[in-house]
Structures are given as C-alpha cells and as structure tokens.
C-alpha cells in the first residue's frame, strides 16, 4: 500500500499523519486521529453527518480525499469549546433549544452552523432551511435545529454594528 504524509492543522494543532492516498478525510479524522464526532451515515455525501470545516468551508468529509486537505485548516466539533471547556454559543443553542435527540447528525449540523454564523450575515428562516438542507435528520423534523441555528445567528448579530 502506498503511504503519503498529510500535514494539516486540525482543531488548531499541527498534525502530521501517514495516510492511504485513497482515504477519505472522514476516515483519517475518525480512524487515525480519533475524532469520532465525525459520523458516517451514508459515505456518499447524502446525509451530511460527517461535515467538517476545511479552511472555514463546510464539506462532506466522507467524499473529500484526505490529500486535498494538505496544508489546510480543519475544524471539527471537538475543536469548538474554548480553553476553559466552555461550550460555544452554537453548542449552547443546540442544548437549550432541545435541538439534539439521538445526536448522530448533531456534530455535522453544528459545523454547518459554525459556517453560517461565521458568515456574519443574517438569514431568513427559508434561507436557513436551504443552508442546512445538506443535513438529514430523522428525529427532529429540523424544527428545533432551525430554532437553534437562528438563535446562534441572532446572538452573533447582537455584537455587530454597535
């Protein structure tokens, strides 16, 4: 088996890891780096459970070759808490709005929410529906997930323009 070396920054930490060049980023993160928040629900880019941020952009890591992440910054849910262990505002919103049920789709949707909130824009409810439509959830009907994302977006905007 060919082995290649992947150098990237994962959750703020420089990582050097030997990978199979055919390997998906989801497998590298889960199997080699132990970041099991990256869930696999379909492995073909349908369900969004494996979503992580690569250089700030939400991608399905199951259909993203690890080699493409060479030199890039990767963020997973494990990287969201601050140094004191405090949950991020988005994580708190998911807890408080009861947006979590079985929890399997949760890390992926939270990562999309990080991208959405990080855009600095405000969105209508319909726009938010479109922005999270790459994530499948069977427990919530998306209702409380939308409430949580909307709340996180609104909270971020409290600090804007003042």
């Amino acid at each position: 088996m060919n082995v290649e070396i992947l150098n990237c920054i994962v959750n703020g930490r420089s990582v050097e890891v030997a990978i199979d060049p055919r390997e998906s980023l989801a497998d590298t993160l889960r199997e080699r780096l132990g970041l099991t928040s990256v869930k696999k629900g379909c492995e073909v880019g349908e369900c969004g459970a494996c979503t992580v941020l690569v250089d700030g952009q939400a991608i399905d890591s199951c259909i993203y070759l690890s080699l493409w992440a060479q030199g890039k910054k990767i963020l997973t849910v494990e990287g969201l808490q601050d140094d004191n262990g405090e949950l991020s505002n988005i994580q708190k919103a998911f807890v408080e709005e009861a947006a979590v049920q079985c929890g399997f789709c949760t890390p992926g949707i939270i990562m999309s929410a990080v991208e959405i909130v990080g855009s600095g824009k405000s969105y209508t409810r319909e726009e938010l529906r479109k922005l999270i439509s790459g994530h499948l959830c069977r427990c919530t009907g998306y209702q409380n997930i939308l409430n949580a994302v909307e709340r996180a977006v609104n909270e971020a905007h409290k600090f804007v323009g003042k």
Binding site: L35, T36, S37, V38, T76, V77, E78, L80, Q81, L87, Q91, F94, V95, E96, A98, V100, G103, T106, P107, I110
Partner: peptide
C-alpha cells in the same frame, strides 16, 4: 435540558 446533550454537542457521546 437533556442530560445527554452536552456529550452529544461536543462529540464525546
């Protein structure tokens, strides 16, 4: 609040 929510939003579950 759900007792399992903190573990589920941090990927620890």
């Amino acid at each position: 609040s759900r007792v399992d929510a903190p573990d589920k939003v941090t990927g620890r579950a």
